[in-house]
């Protein structure tokens, strides 16, 4: 049975997608209720920069990896 390495990338993409939904909801909440105050804008800016920084560091470390490789393992057979 062969499993492509890209499956891990897909799993990360799913987690990142869920995170982005949460991020959008929290940004909406800030924009809706914080009335664009200076502190709210600065904290939102810092949050977005931190997220972009994490994603950039992740990309820097994984973009060169060959995700087309596969992982092969044998399923134990019941036959002798």
């Amino acid at each position: 049975m062969t499993i492509p390495y890209s499956i891990f990338l897909i799993a990360y993409a799913v987690l990142a997608g869920i995170f982005l939904i949460g991020m959008m909801m929290s940004l909406w909440s800030v924009l809706r209720f914080a009335s664009m105050s200076k502190i709210a804008m600065i904290s939102t800016f810092i949050f977005i920069i931190a997220v972009l920084g994490i994603l950039a560091l992740t990309w820097q470390n994984v973009h060169a990896f060959d995700w087309r490789q596969t992982f092969t393992f044998q399923v134990p057979s019941l036959r002798s």
Partner: peptide, 13 residues
């Protein structure tokens, strides 16, 4: 790296 990245993102969120 992917695991740590996801962990840090959720901690930040």
């Amino acid at each position: 790296v992917l695991g740590v990245s996801a962990f840090e993102l959720y901690v930040l969120l």
